[in-house]
Amino acid sequence: MAAPPLRRLIGRIARWTAIALAASAALFFLTVWIGSSIPRNPGWREPGEGVEIMVQSNGVHTALVVPLVAPERDWRPVFPAGDVALSGLPYTHLAISWGEREVFLNTPTWSDLSPVTVLRIVGIGGEGLLHVEHYVRPAPSEDLRPLRLTHGEYARLVAAIDRVVPQGQRVGHPGYGAQDVFYETGGHYTVRNTCNQWTSNTLAAAGVKTGWWTPMAGGVMKWVPHLER
């Protein structure tokens, strides 16, 4: 049994460690809030007409939902429906997102996320992976908010997405269901360059008003107008 002075020392170390961890977490979330509240493209206003996209969130991860066919891009040759198990539906939209390879492929639910994977991402990061879901006339909701862009802005959004579209020989992986698929695309996923940061960076490249640093889904969605009821 440890002597009383040693037990007191161990107790003090444990308390100060807990305080340091709590302070670090508080500082991180404060930095996230500040970073996501500083706007890029602050003068942007949603146009009255143009191309309607959607910004999707499940509370943790965000994606961009784009029309399957528009004057600026026909996505059918890029992400063919034949790549998903349920290929015969009359698809109208794609949900496109970028994220960490291990998390995408091996965590079908968040309860499957390993603490070891989290520590690795925080420490050294991971490899990027592209996720594409095929939708038929998705209905707007609070978690799937419409956002209108001019045709020029949408062309810039397409160009930004193109930067993560795999070139040449495709390497794909089955998705979570019958209507989605993963593609090897590369890129380095880090705490500073997360899936949600990719979403806001892509919107910013189009000229849309969004936050500077948005590692969390809420930092992206706070800039997307709520669904009118």
Rank of each mutant, 00 (worst) to 15 (best):
G50Y: 11
A139L: 14
W16P: 06
A85C: 04
R101Q: 12
L94Y: 06
G35C: 05
I121P: 01
G219M: 00
R12M: 07
M221A: 07
V164R: 15
L130E: 06
Y135C: 06
R120C: 00
P115R: 05
V78T: 15
A81N: 07
A14W: 11
T109C: 02
M1F: 12
L27W: 05
V220I: 07
A23N: 04
V165A: 02
L157V: 06
T92Y: 05
G59A: 01
E127M: 07
T117W: 15
V136A: 03
V122L: 15
D112T: 10
Q197H: 06
V224D: 08
E49A: 15
G175Q: 08
V51W: 05
A139R: 15
G172N: 13
H188L: 04
R156C: 11
P67Y: 03
A159W: 13
V103T: 13
P215I: 11
N193W: 13
Y189R: 05
S141V: 04
I121H: 02
T17M: 06
P90N: 07
G187E: 08
I34W: 09
Y154E: 01
D180Q: 10
L113D: 01
I19L: 15
R163D: 01
P80G: 00
H151I: 03
G172Q: 12
R163W: 03
L144Q: 03
Q179D: 12
A178G: 06
G35P: 09
R192T: 12
